[in-house]
Nucleic acid binder design. Structure first.
Lengths: 341, 341
DNA sequence: TTGAAAGCGCTAACAA
DNA sequence: TTGTTAGCGCTTTCAA
């Protein structure tokens, strides 16, 4: 008995088979077996007779069968997909200045991939307006608006956050030890004999606030002074403006901790424009060890985060969560990259 | 009549509601309406009486209902999700040297987001081993292996490619006009009086081959000479090694076209190490206008691609395809960023 | 303005 | 080794 599979699809042009939409039922009829056997054969189930499997596989190939993933997702109650919610579209040609760069996504991807999970990238507004089918979420950044966390929380999906790791175990957070990063930055400047220090960065971000906290604490311990502080966007322009504001306010400092490398470059440029030399008059240290930090003149000292590992941890924790485990928050050490600035 | 929704879910701890799994059926019973009315109310269907809608919405909120996207995807035969297949995991701290940087993904995301589509990132092996539910695919890079295209083609899904745009309309391709880029690079060097030129890059990549083609053609027209050529990975180290190979082979040149900025930096470093000055002895031009190009010393001249627009075009075309339209391939102009090198 | 029936395409569970 | 039954949770279609 012969079944004309193509005949079941009414609207198709002959040159370009519009949508063959061959289902397992079709294959089953063609092979003279049940739908179930087809399913087993295609998924490599060991109990299928080899000859049967081969016949089914051949027919599937021949008819261009492709599994309907959406159907399987529904039936299995699992999508093998994790959503990554980013705060901003990762655009602009200044990937350098992005707080959550490719490396973090890279780490996440590697780990998800090795567990045969997919990753869907989304923004918070899109996630709310048109949610993708996922088993769990990774939230990149609590940002200034902690309502991002709220929004995600109310979806009822398991989630983990990249950000500031406090003791609060309401949610699972992975992040660099920003407080330690701040202390290390202070140590670096103090070690060069700097005593009047300034901080530049937006401490409405929890992570930045942590850096400032560690920085200020260490300065205090050492008996030096935090003489100034200015908020800044994560860009060179932001750093430039912030430094100018500080100088205009009459602040006198010989060391600056900028909360990103892009900001640090802006600060350095501004200092020079104002007639100061870097690092002789003022030493500057940034954060992130961005690709450009080593290329800038002078090369920019920085605090390096292990983004790759961070991404992997995020992925591991969310996968554990979806499997019912109870992973813990984790904070990762940072390290200094001392350079000319 | 009262329905205890939570009672339908046997295994749940009281402190942390494990999986409420409230369905529309549950809401329907609780609201004393049909499943269908619940569906309509939740999706904002205009024919639902306001009071009914409000009651349903309230109950949904109260019971923490969340739509099962997988079920909807199956029923609607659409996932509102586009897959982006990248060739490599976007890792390493040298995002600078990545051929397909964040900006391209950024452009894609912006466009997809504004059409309420999601984007799932995947690699070719993962896509084959564990395909996500998508309506279409964007392939980033034909790469060296054109079998990537084959693999994708046989899934039967609509797809578009970022890469070298030839006349071939077998598949829809978006890409920069790499041939023109090569010509512009040649012009730039020739304009500085350089006559003995070299090319560094892996012309097994179709896009790189295009750049070389344009470069060589223009040189030829001008009566100058392409005196050497070496393959290279897309990294600084690759560029360094390639330049050394070229020098070791006895090639004498006063201008180099490197197929990426990272390569160009490696080349410059190598030339210096060999006692040549840049740009006096040898002028160098790169490709991509990577973030680091302007920061390097000397700053690196480069050919800029409009990745943001490229991403948007890719997204537009794939969306058009999934809607049954027949969009065309498109090649985008590039522009020169002349700097010190 | 609402509802009943049907089924999207697949696989878990059980039976043979 | 294979098949049968019964849905997964939603929306389309048609009827009221």
């Amino acid at each position: 008995m012969h079944h004309d599979l193509t005949g079941t699809t009414p609207q198709m042009s002959r040159d370009k088979p519009e949508s063959p939409r061959v289902t397992m039922d079709d294959l089953a009829k063609a092979a003279g077996v049940s739908k179930m056997t087809v399913s087993r054969a295609l998924s490599g189930h060991p109990l299928v007779k080899t000859s049967t499997r081969e016949r089914v596989l051949h027919l599937a190939e021949q008819h261009g069968f492709r599994l309907n993933i959406a159907a399987r997702n529904l039936r299995q109650r699992s999508t093998r997909t994790i959503g990554v919610v980013i705060e901003m579209t990762p655009s602009h040609d200044r990937s350098m200045s992005e707080p959550y760069p490719l490396s973090l996504l890279g780490g996440i991807m590697q780990e998800l991939t090795s567990h045969a999970y997919n990753m869907v990238l989304t923004t918070l507004p899109l996630f709310v307006a048109s949610p993708p089918a996922v088993d769990g979420l990774i939230l990149l950044g609590q940002g200034v608006h902690e309502d991002a966390v709220d929004m995600v929380q109310r979806t009822g999906l398991p989630y983990v956050i990249w950000g500031s790791v406090d003791g609060n175990e309401d949610h699972i957070t992975i992040g660099s030890d920003n407080v330690a990063g701040g202390r290390i930055a202070a140590d670096h400047l103090l070690g060069q004999g700097r005593r009047a220090l300034a901080f530049i960065g937006d401490d409405k971000h929890l992570e930045i606030a942590d850096r400032l906290r560690g920085f200020a604490a260490r300065i205090d311990e050492a008996g030096a002074t935090l003489v100034g502080q200015a908020s800044s966007r994560f860009t060179r322009e932001g750093g430039y403006d912030a430094a100018r504001t500080l100088l205009a306010g009459g602040a006198v400092f010989d060391g600056v901790f900028a909360s990103s490398d892009a900001i640090a470059m802006g600060v350095i440029t501004c200092l020079r424009d104002a007639g100061h030399t870097v690092p002789d008059d003022v030493a500057v240290i940034g954060f992130d060890d961005a690709p450009g930090a080593a290329l800038f003149t002078p090369s920019v000292s920085s605090i390096r985060q292990d983004w790759d590992r961070g991404g992997k941890l995020l992925a591991q924790k969310i996968l554990a969560l979806t499997k019912g485990a109870k992973p813990l928050s984790e904070s990762m050490p940072v390290e200094i990259k001392a350079r000319e600035s």
